[in-house]
Design a protein around this nucleic acid. Structure first.
Length: 905
RNA sequence: GCCCGCGUGGUGGAAUGGUAGACACAGGAGACUUAAAAUCUCCAGGCCCUCGGGCCGUGCCGGUUCGAGUCCGGCCGCGGGCACCA
C-alpha cells in the first residue's frame, strides 16, 4: 500500500479492536470508572450527519478517557417506540415491529463503520420485551410508592383517528393527520407525580456545575416557581356550595386596582352555571374549542361572559366587582380564577376596554405622569414606581420586596396567605397508541384498577394487530385485553393505553449499567457505574427528556433501583450543535414573470414570482450539484448533469460560468440558500454512508469536529470534507516517509521535540475542555511543523507517533496505522496518553512585544529567565523607545514576564 | 409580554485582561508536469506609503485599566427558550 486507503485500514483496525475486545466494559476496582453516553437514537431509518457528530464527540471523550487510564463504559441502544413506526405501518401496511427492527439493523450497520468505541454487548432497544418488561416493573413500584396515579385530564381528542393528540399535533385546531376539528375531552389518564419534586428539581439545578447554564435556566423557567398571595372574594348572593371565589396573584401590591373577577370555563362555578343556563353553556363550549397551540393562543380574542354574580373586595365591603367567565383563564394554574387589574396588566387591560370595565391606577410613578388610559396602553414597570396604594392611607413599596410586604400586610389583615406555586404540572404518561410500553394494570369490575403481578411481566404487545382502522389497535384486538383480575380472579380487562415514549428514555442510562439484569437495575453495577460522567446530546432535549430523567433518578432511588449518589444521573452535560448544509433550489422557468434579462426590475418581479403561492420549490441533492466561484468571487451552483456531459474535456471556470449563464437565462438556475438544518424535504442532506464510502470514517469524524466549536452548528461542505481527507492523506504519507527515512540525529531534533510537547499540552487541554476544533487546529499546525522539520528520523518518528496518539480520539483508524507503521507498541487506542514535559514547554528565548502607551511599536528577543529589571533595560535601550521618549523619563514601565512590555510616557 | 445568548476578514472560526485574525475553506501568484490530477512554495483585514514603515480596525456610543474582542453601563442588530402561567 503506497497511499492512504481509508477503506483498507478502517476495516483492518476495527477488526483488531474487536479481537482485542478492548471496548467491553467490566467492573474493575483498580481503575477509575468513566461512563460516557450520547443520547441514543430513534431508529428512523438511516443515520444522519447529526448522529455522526454526536457519536464522534462521545467517542473522542471515551477514547481519551481510555488512554488516560479510565475504565470506560460507552454503550449504545435504540429509543425504539413511537409514532413514526405506526405511521409507517398505516402508510405501507407493514408491522411497526418489523419496521423498527429493520431500521435498527440498517442503522447499526451504518454506525459500525464509524469505528466507535462502543460496548455492543450492552445494546438494547426500548421495544425489546426484556426492556419494557423491566419498565413495567418500575411502574408497579412507582405505583406502590404513590409516585404515579390516575386522574381526569383534558386532552386534545381527534374524533376521526380516535386518539389523543399532543399539542404539537394540533394544527389550527385540527388534527395533523385527519384534519378533523380537535375536541377537548376529559379522559382518565395516568400521571407521574413530578410536581411533588418541583422544589427539589429546581434547587438541585445549582449542583449541576458541569451543565450548560442555558439548560439549567431553561429548566428553571420550565419549573416556574412563583410567589404570591392566595385569597378569596366573597360572593354576594352566592350559590349553594359557592360562597367565595379563591384567586391567586403574584401581584398582591396591585390589589386596589381590581376591577373584575375572571374564572376559567372549567372552573367548578362555571360548570355549575353551565348546567343551569344555556347561554353560559354555549359560551363555555365555544371557549373550550380554542386550540392549545401557540398560534391559536396568539390569535384568540379575549372573550368574557358576565355571569351577573358579584363579589365584595376584601378591603372594602362596599366595593362590588362583577364575575366573568373568560376564555383566557386556565383551570390548571393557580386556582382557575383571577382578579383582573386592567391598570397593570396587558390582558386585563384589553378585557376591560372590551367590556367597559373601570381601569384603576394604583401606582405613584417616580417621575412624570403615567396615563393609564393612553392608547396604546403601556403597562408601567414596577421598578419605576415608588408606592402602591394598597388601602387608602396605607402605602407600600412595589417590586419583589413589595410583593412580600403586600403578602405580610394581607396576612395581617386576615386576607389570604402567601403561597408558592409552580408552573410544572404532573406528567401525563397515557397514550392511546399501540407501539409503546403497555401500562401493566388490569380493570376489574369488582376490584377496580388492579396492578398486574410482577411474575406476569412483561405484558407483551400482541403481534397480530392491524392499522387499517383509526384508533388504538390494542383497544379493538379481539383477545389481548381479556385477562383475569390479579386480586379476585374474575374476568377482567387490561389497560390498553401505553406509556409516553419519554418514559423509555428516562431510565435507559441506568439500564445500560446492567442491561441483562432480571430486575430493572443491578444495584452493585449501578453503584459502580453511575453516574453518567459525560452526557452528550442535542439542546432540543434541554427540558423534557432531561427533567424527566432527573425525576426518574429520584423515583428509582425511592423505589430502591438506584443508589443515593445517582440522585442527579448526569454529572456533566454537553449540548452539541447541528450539522447544516446549503440548500440548492432549482428555479422554475420564469415565462409567466414576463420579464427577461436582469436588473432591479427583473429581480423584483422574480422575487414576487418566487414567493407566489402557486410555485412549489424544487430542490437538488448536494451530490447532483457542482459549486464553483465565478470570476467576481461569487459562489454559484450548477446541475452536475450539465457538466458531466462534457466528460473527458477539462472544465474551467469560464465554461462553468457560461453554462451557468445559459441556465440563468432559461430561468432554471440553481440558487444557493445558505446553511440550514439538514432536512430530507429540502434535500440538503449528506448520507454518512456515502461519505464513508468516498473518504472513510476518519475523514467524516475529523471534519464534523474541525470546523466549528462543538456547541455550535457546523456546516457540511464538500470542499471541507475534501480538505479533511487531504490532510489525513498527508499525515499518512508523512508517516510512511518517516518510516523509510534514515536521516541522522541533528540539532533540529530538540526544536521538533519542544514543539511536540507544546502540542501535547494544547491538545490535551483542548480535549479536556470540549475545544475539539481548537485541538484539531493545533494538530494541523503541528503536522505543518513536522512536515517542514529537518530533524533526524528518530525524533521525527517520536513526533509522528505522538501525533498519532493525539489524533487517535478523533481519527482512530489512521492513528493505529501510523502507530504501527512507526513501530508503536500494541494498539495506540490503549497506549497511555502522552504527557507534556513541563521543561519542554518553556522556551529558552522569548519574543516580547514592546508597547508604547499601549500600542505595539517594537519587539525584542530575550532569554526567558531574564530578570524583569534586565528586560526593562533592554526595552528602554530600544531605538523605538529612545525615539519616543526623546530624552524624557518614562512615567511607568510594565513588564509582564514572558508576555509583554509596556512603556508609559 | 417575560427570560437568555451572540455580534471578530469573502467564509467557518482562534485569542488565562497582554503581539487580534491561529488553523482551515474559498481566492491569488508560482514550482513540478507534454497536459491534467496529485504534490510543494509563497501572498492574503482595510487604507496610505518615500518600501523603513504609518494610520484605522473585533456592531455603535461611553466608562474602568499602563493595556479591552475579552470587564462595566447604554444603544442597535441577530438568534434562542417560555408564554393567555394571573
Amino acid at each position: 500500500m503506497s497511499r492512504y486507503s481509508a477503506a483498507e485500514i478502517e476495516a483492518k483496525w476495527q477488526q483488531a479492536w474487536d479481537t482485542a475486545g478492548i471496548f467491553r466494559a467490566r467492573r474493575d476496582a483498580t481503575r477509575p470508572k468513566y461512563y460516557v453516553l450520547e443520547m441514543f437514537p430513534y431508529p428512523s431509518g438511516r443515520i444522519h450527519m447529526g448522529h455522526v457528530r454526536n457519536y464522534t464527540m462521545g467517542d473522542v471523550v471515551a477514547r481519551y478517557k481510555i488512554a488516560t487510564g479510565h475504565n470506560v463504559l460507552h454503550p449504545m441502544g435504540w429509543d425504539a417506540f413511537g409514532m413514526p413506526a405506526e405511521n409507517a405501518a398505516m402508510a405501507s401496511g407493514g408491522h411497526p415491529k418489523d419496521w423498527t427492527y429493520a431500521n435498527i439493523e440498517t442503522m447499526r450497520a451504518q454506525m459500525k463503520p464509524l469505528g466507535l468505541s462502543i460496548d455492543w454487548s450492552r445494546e438494547f432497544a426500548t421495544c425489546d420485551p426484556e426492556y419494557y418488561g423491566q419498565q413495567q416493573a418500575l411502574f408497579l413500584d412507582f405505583l406502590d410508592h404513590g409516585l404515579v396515579y390516575r386522574k381526569n385530564a383534558v386532552v386534545n381528542w381527534d374524533p376521526v383517528d380516535m386518539t389523543v393528540l399532543a399539542n404539537e399535533q394540533v394544527i389550527d385546531g385540527k388534527g395533523w393527520r385527519s384534519g378533523a376539528d380537535v375536541e377537548r375531552r376529559e379522559l382518565t389518564q395516568w400521571f407521574f407525580r413530578i410536581s411533588d419534586f418541583a422544589e427539589e428539581l429546581l434547587g438541585a439545578l445549582d449542583t449541576l456545575d458541569n451543565w450548560p447554564a442555558k439548560v439549567r435556566l431553561m429548566q428553571e423557567n420550565w419549573i416556574g416557581k412563583s410567589r404570591g398571595l392566595q385569597f378569596a372574594f366573597g360572593l354576594i348572593d352566592g350559590l349553594e356550595g359557592h360562597d367565595r371565589i379563591e384567586v391567586y396573584t403574584t401581584r398582591p401590591d396591585t390589589l386596589m386596582g381590581a376591577s373584575f373577577i375572571g374564572i376559567s370555563p372549567d372552573h367548578p362555578l362555571a360548570k355549575r352555571l353551565e348546567a343551569e343556563c344555556a347561554d353560559v353553556a354555549a359560551f363555555c363550549a365555544e371557549a373550550r374549542k380554542g386550540g392549545t397551540t401557540a398560534e391559536a393562543i396568539e390569535k384568540a380574542e379575549k372573550l368574557g361572559f358576565d355571569t351577573g354574580l358579584r363579589v365584595r373586595h376584601p378591603f372594602d365591603t362596599a366595593w362590588e366587582l362583577p364575575v366573568y367567565i373568560a376564555n383566557f383563564i386556565l383551570m390548571d394554574y393557580g386556582t382557575g380564577a383571577i382578579f383582573g387589574c386592567p391598570g397593570h396588566d396587558q390582558r386585563d387591560h384589553d378585557f376591560a376596554r372590551k367590556y367597559d370595565l373601570p381601569i384603576i391606577d394604583t401606582f405613584l410613578p417616580l417621575e412624570g405622569a403615567h396615563d393609564i388610559h393612553a392608547t396604546p396602553y403601556v403597562p408601567l414597570k414596577s421598578e419605576r414606581v415608588r408606592y402602591t396604594r394598597l388601602v387608602a392611607g396605607e402605602e407600600i413599596q412595589t417590586g419583589e420586596a413589595g410583593v412580600e410586604t403586600a403578602i405580610d400586610f394581607c396576612e395581617a389583615k386576615g386576607v389570604g396567605q402567601g403561597v408558592t406555586k409552580f408552573r410544572l404540572r404532573d406528567w401525563g404518561l397515557s397514550r392511546q397508541r399501540y407501539w409503546g410500553c403497555p401500562i401493566p394494570v388490569v380493570h376489574c369490575d369488582t376490584c377496580g384498577v388492579v396492578p398486574e403481578r410482577k411474575e406476569n411481566l412483561p405484558i407483551r404487545l400482541p403481534e397480530d394487530v392491524s392499522f387499517d382502522a383509526p384508533g388504538n389497535p390494542l383497544d379493538r384486538h379481539p383477545t389481548w385485553a381479556a385477562c383475569t383480575c390479579p386480586r379476585c380472579g374474575a374476568p377482567a380487562r387490561r389497560e390498553t393505553d401505553t406509556m409516553d415514549t419519554f418514559v423509555d428514555s428516562s431510565w435507559y442510562y441506568a439500564r445500560f449499567t446492567a442491561p441483562h439484569a432480571a430486575t430493572p437495575t443491578d444495584m452493585a453495577e449501578a453503584e459502580y457505574w453511575m453516574n453518567v460522567d459525560q452526557y452528550i446530546g442535542g439542546i432540543e432535549h434541554a427540558i423534557l427528556h432531561l427533567l424527566y430523567s432527573r425525576f426518574f433518578a429520584r423515583a428509582m432511588q425511592i423505589t430502591g433501583h438506584l443508589p443515593a449518589k445517582a440522585i442527579e444521573p448526569f454529572d456533566a452535560l454537553f449540548t452539541q450543535g447541528m450539522v447544516t448544509h446549503s440548500i440548492y433550489e432549482l428555479t422554475h422557468n420564469q415565462v409567466d414573470t414576463g420579464i427577461a434579462g436582469s436588473g432591479p426590475e427583473a429581480d423584483t418581479k422574480f422575487e414576487e414570482y418566487r414567493r407566489s403561492e402557486t410555485r412549489l420549490p424544487t430542490y437538488l441533492f448536494p451530490e447532483d450539484v457542482i459549486e464553483f466561484t465565478d470570476s467576481f468571487g461569487e459562489k454559484k451552483a450548477l446541475k452536475r448533469s450539465l457538466v458531466e456531459t462534457n466528460e473527458g474535456i477539462s472544465i474551467n471556470t469560464q465554461m462553468l460560468e457560461s453554462a451557468w449563464l445559459r441556465e440563468f437565462e432559461a430561468g432554471t438556475e440553481v440558487r444557493i440558500i445558505p446553511s440550514a438544518k439538514m432536512s430530507k424535504s429540502k434535500k440538503n442532506v449528506v448520507d454518512p454512508s456515502t461519505i464513508i464510502a468516498q473518504y472513510g470514517a476518519d475523514t467524516a469524524r475529523w471534519f464534523v469536529l474541525s470546523d466549528s466549536p462543538p456547541e455550535r452548528d457546523v456546516e457540511w461542505t464538500a470542499a471541507g470534507a475534501e480538505a479533511a481527507h487531504r490532510h489525513l492523506s498527508r499525515v499518512w504519507r508523512l508517516a510512511s516517509e518517516i518510516a523509510q527515512s534514515d536521516a541522522p540525529a541533528n540539532p533540529e531534533d530538540e526544536t521538533l521535540l519542544r514543539e511536540m510537547h507544546k502540542c501535547i499540552d494544547d491538545v490535551t487541554k483542548g480535549i479536556d475542555s470540549f475545544g475539539f476544533n481548537a485541538a484539531i487546529a493545533r494538530l494541523y499546525a503541528f503536522t505543518n511543523t513536522l512536515a517542514k522539520s529537518q530533524a533526524g528520523q528518530a525524533a521525527k518518528s517520536t513526533a509522528a507517533r505522538t501525533l498519532a496518539q493525539l489524533m487517535s480520539p478523533m481519527t482512530p483508524h489512521l492513528a493505529e496505522d501510523v502507530w504501527s507503521m512507526l513501530g508503536g507498541e500494541n494498539l495506540v487506542t490503549i497506549a497511555p496518553w502522552p504527557v507534556a514535559d513541563p521543561q519542554m514547554l518553556i522556551d529558552e528565548t522569548v519574543i516580547l512585544p514592546i508597547q508604547i502607551n499601549g500600542k505595539r511599536r517594537a519587539e525584542i528577543s530575550v532569554p526567558a529567565d531574564l530578570p524583569e529589571s534586565e528586560v526593562e533595560k533592554i526595552a528602554l535601550a530600544h531605538d523605538a523607545v529612545v525615539k519616543a521618549l526623546d530624552g524624557a523619563q518614562p512615567r511607568k514601565i510594565i513588564v509582564v514576564p514572558g508576555r509583554i512590555v509596556n512603556v508609559v510616557l
